[in-house]
Design a protein around this nucleic acid. Structure first.
Lengths: 260, 260
DNA sequence: CGAAGCGTATCATATAATAATACTTGATAT
DNA sequence: ATATCAAGTATTATTATATGATACGCTTCG
């Protein structure tokens, strides 16, 4: 057992967490052996750990198929998260106003290492399910929100992000060329907002403004996704951008302290 | 150590989970000793477990205050949950349509033991923060959604719920008298929907229709919250209810299998 | 009917978690 | 400045506790 050998590290707990993380969009319910395969733990360990998680209410178990599933407790954790995140509380009312004004889907994205994570989503039009689910984590470089955030970094940090942060192709048109991304971010530096097309879904245009901390560095973004069938970049700039910008500014904490 | 002494029960994992559950709306960041107090574990244990959770990315640690906070990973768990819940995927597009039509806050609530839990929320008007956060768990008897669900139970189950499920005063006007609640639920049995006022927040009216499984028994509800200042029960019944009912019916799985 | 796959149960062993203790740090007050 | 206190951090001997190999039982297929 080559564990992080540290007396302040509880291996069993870490293993249990790996079980939780074995579930994702394409693994929504898992059998005992499937859990073992995905977590890399052996059958006996999974048996004990999954049983514990079940007893503690963290995993539901289908009495007939014997498969495990995320339980409602996972949502309760999200509930606790929301109360702990200062930003969300301040942002929500303003985001609601914005979505009502423009009648399009509005998102709040926070920086999470080199990804962005959608913290709040207010869908206004029918969209893909994935576009409505909170907690989605996407490469920062591939999203308008991430680019807007990066655009507020110092030139050095910006360059490092552009050069080293991960990329992944989601559509045939997802930009994988870092030079092109650099142009997009440079544009965002000039204009104070980022626009991207076809990055996550084809015919989708994203526009985002950074939410900056007192130091001027952004740690989140307000983002709006619209269909390229009904919107052009010009119309977005004319009709959506001003309000989006106002909302982002209104949310940005100018003096008060916030979490990193 | 008087643990559930069972070789299939991993105590350390269970303890770690208790740490996660120590966070809620009024405990958004916790120090080491605060965690120890809230979890009932001793300082050394919390030190080890919290450290593990931190290393594994489940807890953020403020480098200056040394306090722990829920991390973005908690939202990723919610993300995984959403994909595993069949109902949400089917319901979301219809809920979006509904909220756009009526211009009021729409919620999807699922039954979770004797509580309901808000799984999806589409806020349309500014409201209290608590009314916008998913994962909120409320006594089923005190919500229109819960009463709508209970109204589909067999008379025996209904009675048991009314008599034994928990109640809690959230406002001075929260109904704590079970006879009154029985009347409300009986009404729901007759009419196919439940209406309640001032239960969670003063001057708030909730109206809900059950989402029933193939067996006719509900396991979720579509719910709409409006302000008593702008709405009367009559207007709600005339303008909101028909569409709410349609939406609930459209979501209800008639033949396909679903989670319990 | 036999085999295969999966979930469940048992148990001897030593690893890995424990809790007591002591050390470090930083804040507050004297 | 110095003392005091509370909270976080580090270390250690001890044994309780997690481990994983093995065996059993139940379905499902071919």
């Amino acid at each position: 057992m080559e564990k992080k050998q540290n007396t302040l590290y509880v291996g069993s707990l870490a293993k249990g967490l790996r079980l939780l993380r074995a579930f994702d969009e394409s693994h929504t319910e898992l059998s005992l052996v499937a859990l073992a395969e995905r977590s890399g733990l052996d059958k006996s360990a999974v048996q004990r750990l999954a049983n514990t998680l079940h007893i503690e209410g963290m995993l539901d178990k289908d009495p007939v198929t014997r498969r495990f599933r995320p339980s409602h407790a996972w949502l309760e954790l999200a509930y606790a998260y929301y109360w702990s995140d200062q930003l969300v509380g301040q942002a929500i009312p303003k985001l609601i106003d914005l979505s009502q004004e423009i009648g399009e889907t509005v998102n709040l994205a926070e920086l999470s290492k080199d990804h962005i994570i959608y913290v709040s989503r207010l869908p206004c039009q029918r969209t893909y399910f994935a576009a409505t689910v909170i907690g989605r984590r996407l490469p920062a470089l591939s999203t308008s929100g991430g680019r807007a955030i990066i655009s507020t970094f110092s030139p050095e940090d910006r360059e490092e992000a552009i050069e080293t942060w991960p990329l992944k192709a989601f559509t045939p048109r997802t930009t994988l060329d870092r030079a092109t991304i650099r142009n997009s971010i440079d544009e965002a530096v000039q204009q104070g907002h980022a626009i991207s097309s076809d990055q996550m879904i084809l015919s989708e245009i994203g526009v985002a403004c950074p939410i900056t901390g007192p130091d001027g560095r952004a740690f989140a973004a307000v983002q709006c996704s619209v269909s390229a069938h009904t919107w052009t970049r010009e119309r977005i700039r004319a009709e959506i951008l001003p309000r989006l910008q106002d909302t982002a500014n209104a949310i940005s904490p100018s003096s008060q302290v916030h979490r990193r």
